[in-house]
Write a protein that binds this DNA or RNA. Structure first.
Lengths: 200, 200
DNA sequence: TCTTTTAGTTAACGGTGTTAACCTCTGTTA
DNA sequence: TAACAGAGGTTAACACCGTTAACTAAAAGA
């Protein structure tokens, strides 16, 4: 690895931070541990990030980008809008199950628990909503979905999915309920909420 | 206030803890602050609680009980199952908006961020699901709701609502979307997901 | 060559959860 | 009545935390 290929300290910090987060969870995610991971002093993190929240925001941004990328791929594989909606939901779920800690970084942090997620980054995060919005619009055009405000609906769709995965990941499901069944049922209900109601 | 009316230290700690949590948020919720509030040493908290998580769990239990009580009241005020479902959703939303910090205590804490919420307490917490389950069963009997597994459906209903309020409270809504409108739309979609589909 | 800038360091501050050792009452028992 | 035991607190300390200030060494520019 020659000089130009070497990762900048900023990149190294991000890598180390991701590693610590995935390995130990947010609760044990500390600047000193991150710094120790790359044999550097904890204070040097401040040369590249405003503070701890700023670093976390960077990880959030990354995780969101990854999720969005996967959603984009999946949605391109199907044709009709209802199937697309289902594909989106399933990919969303699958991401949360495969990368629970990363998923939780995206969401766990709420209003007063952390500095507001900065506006510039938030814009990128909206990509996911755009994908859903487009699918909903498509569905309206082809007469399968009744929805006068697709962007608004995209947010409700997303929120519902998040709620479902949040319950699963925080392990709040009743023992008597099987996780997979729960997810299936939820996806089914969520999609039904957007389908046009006609006689069967 | 005579001796027998005096609150036990345990109760005083819980009161102080609730006060600190509501005033400063979970991030600034520390044992030393709680102790300072009632002029007692921080370590004496350990005489009444196993650790910080245990104390938080107690606050969670309390908040859940309050929410459940309000839901029970509201659901008794309406008659038909669909209206009951709507009343439940609205009361849930209203609680989250009125007591955001308490609401967040109920949910914010996820699997690896905190010791698992203990089983005995979890049982009490299920009351809310029972209420929803009963309403759904009622709806099935009167032919308004198509649902073969009401308990499972109660969990999906709850999860979706949580997702919606989680997005609202973490202030992740697009500027262009009005909060109230978002909530209305979401409740509408969620309930539609449980209604029997017949020709209009 | 002198000077400024950059990129890092160490030391320290005030805070955290938690544990160990101690103290001081109160009630019981010999 | 004296000795004891336990309950219910205390103080001191440990190991960690995010963050700031002051310093240093090397590189870059003049």
């Amino acid at each position: 690895m020659n000089k130009t290929e070497e990762k900048s300290l900023k990149e190294q910090i991000i890598d180390a931070a991701r590693k610590v987060l995935l390995a130990k969870g947010y609760r044990n995610f500390s600047l000193r541990k991150i710094a120790g991971e790359i044999d550097v002093s904890a204070t040097s993190i401040y040369l590249h990030f405003e503070n701890k929240d700023d670093l976390v925001h960077t990880l959030m941004e990354e995780a969101i980008a990854r999720l969005n990328k996967q959603l984009e791929q999946k949605v391109a594989e199907v044709d009709d809008p209802i199937s697309k909606l289902e594909a989106l939901a399933r990919e969303y779920v699958s991401f949360a199950l495969k990368h629970p800690r990363e998923y939780q970084v995206i969401y766990l942090i709420s209003s007063d628990e952390m500095t507001r997620y900065p506006k510039e980054k938030f814009r990128k995060a909206r990509k996911g909503y755009e994908i859903v919005t487009d699918v909903l619009k498509e569905g309206v055009e082809s007469g399968l979905i009744a929805e006068s405000r697709p962007r608004l609906a995209a947010y409700t769709f997303w929120a519902q999915l998040h709620g479902v995965m949040s319950v699963v990941l925080s392990k709040r499901l009743d023992n008597r309920i099987e996780q997979e069944e729960f997810i299936e049922e939820a996806i089914d209900h969520i999609i039904k909420g957007y389908q046009l109601r006609t006689s069967l």
